[in-house]
């Protein structure tokens, strides 16, 4: 048995190998990538318009914005958490942006955004670590609070237009690459290094994998968990600001699909919902997959409800693959 496993490729977080279940292993490692290829092949047949340069650009920008949220969500999932409040945080951040478009007070905007991240991240983190509330309940509660706070703050008048400079960032290019995509790629690099090359990153995998073992070797478990929720909130703020710039306007439903999509992207990209496994590369592939799928549905002229159905189905399939795989690993 052992000899066989030694030949396993070396990686920063080698995947668990279970006897049998090769298809499942393969699926969970390359599911997102192969699904991307498959979807592109389907697109080539059913909707050649998908490959127009303009549309490719759109897909990439959408990937980038979702991808930024997914970076945060991945961190939360690796730490055996998840964050349901990202959608609300995105929309609230966008509301601050359109207000500042009126006032032109960019300093205030920065303070508002930082406070938003700190308040939501700490509230989630403390509920989870200090009070032992399950992450989905804590972050869902914050989803309601943040949405409620936004409605109270705006009296429901969330609609508005983004400032000109932000529109330029959201839809502009640098050396032919859309700026949101550049920002996403830079952040992806930062997360890649942070997860694999820093103490914090190793601690995060340790905390997600076995909290008690982590405590025993001196990992500050609560601090690490709280940091994950600060990061999800921060990534949601960045994505919300970029999205409002890209769209040029803001409304009440700006972030609404991002909870489900960010989780579906990360999980189909091989990030384990049981914590401690997966990485941002796979998750980003998941983001690409979802962006392509959503766009393809639009290009094909299908009704908007198909987007909901597809993103729900992707999440179900991703969780089922992982569930089956975990069950097989347990059994062996």
């Amino acid at each position: 048995m052992n000899d066989k496993v030694i030949t396993e490729p070396k990686g920063s977080t080698p995947a668990r190998r279970a006897g049998g279940g090769r298809l499942l292993d393969w699926l969970s490692q390359y599911a997102a990538f192969s699904a991307v290829l498959l979807t592109l092949a389907v697109a080539a047949i059913v909707a050649p318009a998908f490959f127009s340069p303009g549309n490719i650009r759109t897909v990439l920008i959408q990937t980038a914005i979702l991808g930024i949220v997914v970076l945060g969500q991945t961190v939360a999932l690796i730490g055996r958490g998840l964050d349901m409040s990202v959608a609300a945080v995105m929309t609230f951040a966008a509301v601050f942006v359109i207000q500042s478009a009126g006032s032109g007070n960019w300093g205030l905007l920065l303070v508002q955004l930082v406070l938003l991240v700190a308040a939501v991240g700490l509230a989630n983190g403390l509920l989870v670590t200090w009070r032992g509330v399950p992450p989905f309940v804590a972050t869902f509660a914050l989803l309601i609070v943040v949405d409620g706070a936004r409605l109270a703050y705006t009296r429901g008048q969330s609609a508005g237009s983004a400032p000109q400079w932000l529109k330029e960032i959201g839809s502009g290019s640098l050396l032919g690459v859309p700026i949101p995509v550049l920002i996403w790629l830079v952040l992806l690099g930062v997360f890649l290094v942070a997860l694999n090359k820093t103490t914090w990153g190793r601690w995060l995998y340790a905390v997600g994998s076995n909290r008690e073992s982590a405590r025993h070797i001196g990992v500050p478990v609560s601090t690490v968990v709280i940091s994950t929720f600060l990061i999800t909130a921060a990534s949601a703020v960045v994505a919300g600001v970029l999205l409002s710039g890209y769209l040029g306007y803001v409304d009440n439903t700006l972030g609404s699909n991002y909870n489900l999509n960010s989780m579906a992207a990360a999980i189909i990209g091989g990030v384990a919902f049981t914590g401690g496994r997966g990485g941002v590369i796979g998750a980003s592939m998941g983001a690409l997959l979802l962006a392509i799928l959503m766009n393809l549905l639009v290009v094909m002229g299908l009704d908007i409800f198909w987007q909901q159905i597809v993103q729900g189905a992707v999440l179900v399939i991703a969780v089922v693959i992982q569930g089956l795989r975990a069950r097989r690993a347990e059994g062996s």
């Binding site: 080698p14 668990r16 190793r202 995998y205 340790a206 994998s209 076995n210 073992s213 025993h216 401690g276």
Partner: peptide, 13 residues
């Protein structure tokens, strides 16, 4: 098992 190792992770980790 419960307090020492991180099962599912490499020896190196």
């Amino acid at each position: 098992k419960a307090h020492g190792i991180f099962a599912g992770h490499s020896i190196a980790f």
